[in-house]
Design a protein around this nucleic acid. Structure first.
Lengths: 237, 237
DNA sequence: TTGTCAAAGGTATAATACAGGTTTCCCTGC
DNA sequence: GCAGGGAAACCTGTATTATACCTTTGACAA
């Protein structure tokens, strides 16, 4: 595993190292938990300094392709949503993405996860989903308590869809949602509207428990329609 | 911008630096094209070596929050799909995601982008979309030529949806699709089936040109139904 | 006023050093 | 023969220094 040094543009050693290392993962069919060669070994094999290798490994760790740990060789990692979450948050911060666009994506995706969850959920998952919905209805605590059950409910549904890509995306939006949720809550002026939102979640959970995908998808869409309406009413955008 | 050094776990200086730098971006409201302080300055401000700063910057560059360039200070970057693409490809390589799951996500997302494109496309975008569809029908070149028009068509539709998150996701799947597309093509055994696939794309393009969102979404769904059927027929999974 | 060019500022890579964590394996005692 | 302990080997995290080379700035000259 080496590359023609002369063809590498200056300032591109790290990119080339990243490519080489991902190639090692692919060619050796490494799976989560497997180890890469030590930095010193990679450094020698790829004919670059340990500095370059470390920056390449850090890049892959940022993308969560690998895990790094003191004293341990680099380990192939499980996919997780934190990297995409950071990217999305950055996109929102820098005005490249607005919240309503994210809500449209969520509606699109989560209507599907609701339908799939209704088809595929285990009984244990159904109980977790229903539990969060009922906790929202019953909650007498601060709004943040309702919010956390809301977020956990959506995540549980995504996991029950049995498609890790949906779970990845729903998880990635959590950070942004946590920053936006209070806006929608305050925008729902009276207790009736707030109770309606909570009971809509309960209906959704029941549709999933009942194994009714059409109803679940429709209720999820309705939920997002109302959320988006609340955000618009709050003057977003 | 500094942090209590004593609270940072060993092996975590880079994570802390990443957090501090993203905080600098947020607090200073930096936008794409704006610059971060030089490495030496960050090194002094955060009280860590340039080594740590560089690894942190590389991490952020891997996530495409910033761009690095020789002689230039780190620059806030435009969002782009390459990082997510690498993550998705890694997920597929390591058996954490399978192709049919990606196709289900694409169907979900792209039914929506087709509908939005029908509503929002400019005339210029409509022409590009139609152009790729007609090129697919007319192509007499190798399958890869048809594939590239296919991929470009889906991307053009996503861009016309005017939601950068959809464009990000559709773009992120391109790499995996490029590796899978030939399977579906070969699985469509005869010329009739292949012509049907191409003309379905043309109908889809026409629905978008006509500004008919229901038809566009329905045609996109049908297209994915058939693609998934072809992949199943090819014995995927 | 404009063009040129040197100096200042900046990043990319390499090499070295050392602290401290992890893994391996040998040796001891039973 | 085997279990346990501990040292040695292995490995990563951070800092420092040096140097090549790229970009930007600003002053000077035509």
């Amino acid at each position: 595993m080496t590359f023609a040094r002369s063809q590498i543009a200056p300032g591109d050693f790290v990119s080339a190292a990243i490519a080489s290392i991902t190639r090692i993962i692919r060619d050796n069919d490494l799976k989560p938990g497997d180890h890469l060669p030590a930095e010193a070994v990679l450094s020698e094999q790829l004919h670059v300094s340990r500095t370059v290798i470390r920056e390449a490994l850090r890049s892959l760790a940022a993308l969560r392709l690998i895990d790094l740990g003191i004293g341990k060789r680099p380990t192939i990692a499980q996919i997780d949503d934190s990297s995409i979450a950071i990217m999305i948050e950055h996109g929102v911060m820098t005005d490249q993405i607005d919240i309503l666009q994210i809500y449209d994506v969520r509606r699109t995706i989560e209507a599907r996860t609701a339908g799939l969850a209704a088809l595929r959920r285990t009984d244990a998952e159904a109980q977790v989903i229903l539990g969060h919905a009922q906790a929202m209805v019953r909650s007498s605590g601060p709004p943040s308590e309702i919010m956390e059950h809301d977020i956990a409910l959506h995540m549980a549904i995504a996991l029950a869809s049995r498609n890790p890509v949906f779970a990845l995306l729903v998880g990635a939006f959590q950070g942004v949602i946590r920053q936006t949720w209070p806006i929608g809550w305050k925008s729902r002026a009276n207790d009736d509207e707030r109770a309606a939102m909570n009971s809509l979640h309960e209906e959704l959970a029941l549709a999933i428990v009942d194994g009714n995908p059409q109803a679940a998808a429709a209720l999820m869409s309705r939920h997002f329609d109302q959320s988006i309406k609340s955000l618009l009413a709050a003057g977003l955008n």
